[in-house]
Simulated scan of single mutants.
Amino acid sequence: MAIIAIVGRTNVGKSTLFNRISKSSKALVDDLPGVTRDRNYARGMWDEKSFTLVDTGGYIIKDDSLFDQSTREQIFHALQEADMLLFVADGKTGLHPEDSALLNILRRTSKPIFFSVNKIDGPEQQGPLADFYALGVQDIYPISAAHGFGVGELVSDMVKFIPEPASLEAGEEAEVSEIRISILGRPNVGKSTLVNRVLGAPRVIVSPIPGTTRDAVDTLFERDARKYLLIDTAGIRKKGKTKEKLEKLSIIKALQSIDKSHICVLLIDASEGVADQDLHIAGYIQERYRACIVGVNKWDAFDSNPKTRKNFLEDLKWRFRFMPFAPILTFSALTGKGTQKVLP
């Protein structure tokens, strides 16, 4: 399946366009620059052609922070795996030096590039397009990701580069849907570290700062001829501790990921023990009748005394007695020890 990566500097409307094309609201959208940090995936269909759409974080020239550096790395990973690149610029703010810098990087990939200028709400607002021809771009697509203007023409031209879908031979079965697995838990229990460990690649940004993951980040992968969709989610705090609008939206996304999952992995920090919030999250999973695995992370840092470990697991099993069907797995996402049990 063809992969189309959406790239551009911060706050140009990439996530809004991602949601428009994929006909979903999977990506968080906010006026605050830098809302998207990781790559986010969705499947799209246009003119009877399927593709995978990738939303990326905003490109910033300066590497002033850990998140800026990590976001740039995620963008470069997206460029490597993509078959086509959809560049998005901001028609309201006009041409920016970061547009030129990023476009030079894209051109070195030798992949098809479609150049769009967003926030153009109609033909009468196309005046700002003239500045962008200074980049040496032949075709510019004026679009409004928010209202849909010009998006249809853009995507129709992109999918022309996708080969016609092969028809199924007699007796051949259609593609089996992937198994969807959500990784859930409180902030900083190691969800993104576990995702990267399972995938064997730095798929999502990891840092010791709680709240690093803002969006529910989907990753399609295949193992032993079976397809999976792994969903890394934002940490779910208690309601009273959630004050920022963006964090509230992130938590809503995390809870929505339960609905679309077949299996939920509830991650617990062994060094902190079971908190009431862990039980609340388990309640959300049970209410939606989803299969569940209780994963005890950072087990390598826990007291090595066998009796202490046994008492801990017995207490954990008792506190989760309302979910007797959920197996309890111990592992270290950081070192990888025991993580093979999550996806045997």
Rank of each mutant, 00 (worst) to 15 (best):
Y141I: 01
D215P: 05
R108P: 07
V151H: 08
Y133L: 05
Y228V: 02
S144Y: 06
G200T: 02
R214W: 07
D218M: 04
E172N: 11
I236T: 08
F132V: 10
K227H: 13
I113V: 06
V206M: 05
L220P: 00
F161Y: 10
Y133I: 01
G136Y: 02
G152P: 02
R108I: 06
F149Y: 15
T219Q: 15
L168F: 13
N196A: 08
I140G: 11
V189M: 03
M158E: 00
I140D: 13
E175P: 06
I162D: 03
S182T: 12
K227W: 00
I162A: 10
I181E: 10
G136V: 02
D139Y: 02
V137I: 15
D99A: 07
L103C: 03
I236F: 08
P142F: 12
E164R: 13
F115Y: 10
I205V: 12
I113D: 01
I231L: 03
E178Y: 03
L129M: 10
T219R: 15
I179K: 13
N196E: 05
S207Q: 07
P208F: 04
A170K: 14
G150K: 05
E164L: 13
S144K: 13
F149S: 10
A101M: 04
G122K: 10
G148E: 08
V198S: 00
A234V: 04
T219C: 12
S177N: 12
D215M: 09
D121F: 07
Y228E: 04
D139S: 09
A134V: 00
L106N: 02
I231G: 08
P187H: 06
P163W: 08
P208E: 11
G136W: 02
R197Y: 00
A201E: 15
P210Y: 10
R186E: 14
K160P: 00
L220G: 06
V155I: 15
L220H: 11
L229F: 00
D215Y: 12
I162F: 13
K191Y: 02
D157V: 02
T219S: 14
L230W: 07
R108H: 13
G185M: 09
T212A: 02
L199N: 03
S177G: 11
L135R: 09
F149I: 04
P208A: 06
I209R: 04
P112Y: 01
I183V: 14
E222G: 04
Q138L: 05
V159S: 09
N196C: 06
R186L: 09
I179D: 00
S182V: 08
V198G: 00
D139T: 15
A174D: 15
S156N: 13
S116I: 01
P210T: 03
I205N: 03
V155P: 05
L135F: 04
